[in-house]
């Protein structure tokens, strides 16, 4: 279990992390969300001491994380990069060995992960000879090569085509069912909703919402309300309503005790109701609510 508590970090005039913290249990997938500049990358870098926090605690299974513990973690930074002129297999073995694996174990692990990620036949190619998608896979392989217990991925889905997204989602699910703890950041909220059990949302250097996604949804006092009248979005006239305009498919977010029957009656008076959905909030609704100023 990874736990981060009360992490502070200031860069000059900018307070990047202001008491941020979350935890994720072994074998679970946590989606780490937040607007640009909220502190996601800084928080992930703190786990690897790439950024040294001004204060705060990072523990793994209850023990403060040190250099040795970090060797059991895999990290894929947002800024992708490997050695362009090195053979894929050689650099992955290099990284696995830097993480403490013996030469034989490193070779076995690299062979395994290249196979899992569909790069087995490209092992002897130089990185720069690979397609963009395969370079992404090699990058993930570099994070996986030491057979990590904790995998931290910064924007792993950025730049992937839909098939790449599906295949990475599948890989992450398999890893987590194999006991690997995964933290990844993303802006693709529906994807996070699909893949993650847990979420943590960071805003202005603080965690504003975190926990089990289903529980958060159930606990929420808000509901998503989507009404179409005569095939077009219809917004009721209610107090305490938040309207989300979304390319022709508008919806609103209302309190969970909103008078649903009354609203439906008003809608029917306005025309032919073709859609009426009153449901738990989606992650996008929770996110929007959490990061609103």
């Amino acid at each position: 279990m990874l736990t981060m508590i009360d992490v502070h970090k200031r860069f000059g005039d900018v307070l990047a992390l202001n008491g941020a913290g979350f935890s994720v249990e072994r074998g679970r997938i946590l989606g780490f969300l937040g607007p640009n500049g909220a502190g996601k990358t800084t928080m992930m870098r703190v786990i690897f001491d790439l950024v040294h926090p001004d204060s705060g605690i990072v523990t793994w299974n209850g023990i403060p994380v040190d250099a040795k513990a970090r060797l059991g973690f895999g990290y894929m930074p947002e800024e992708r990069g490997l050695y362009p002129k090195m053979k894929v297999v050689n650099q992955l073995v290099h990284f696995a060995r830097l993480s403490g694996l013996s030469n034989d174990d490193a070779r076995d692990a690299v062979e395994h992960w290249l196979g899992v990620l569909g790069l087995g036949d490209r092992a002897d190619a130089k990185l720069e000879e690979l397609s963009h998608g395969n370079q992404q896979r090699a990058q993930l392989a570099a994070a996986l090569a030491p057979n990590p217990e904790l995998l931290v991925l910064d924007e792993p889905f950025a730049g992937l085509d839909p098939i790449g997204v599906d295949s990475l989602s599948q890989t992450l699910r398999e890893l987590s069912s194999g006991g690997v703890t995964i933290v990844f950041s993303s802006h693709q909220l529906d994807l996070v909703e699909d893949v993650c059990q847990d979420v943590a949302i960071i805003n202005d250097g603080r965690i504003v919402l975190d926990g089990d996604l289903d529980q958060i949804k159930a606990r929420s006092s808000r509901r998503r309300l989507t009404i179409d009248v005569d095939g077009r979005s219809w917004i009721p006239d209610l107090p305490d309503i938040e309207v989300v305009r979304n390319h022709g498919q508008d919806h609103c977010v209302v309190p969970d005790d909103a008078p649903v029957a009354d609203i439906l009656a008003v809608a029917e008076a306005a025309g032919n109701v073709t859609r009426f959905a009153f449901e738990p909030p989606h992650l996008t609704d929770l996110f929007r609510e959490a990061v609103q100023p």
Binding site: F48, L50, P77, E79, L98
Partner: peptide, 13 residues
């Protein structure tokens, strides 16, 4: 320039 430095520094000082 290749950004590989962050991958390296996640393992060593």
């Amino acid at each position: 320039q290749n950004r590989v430095v962050e991958v390296v520094l996640s393992r060593v000082r």
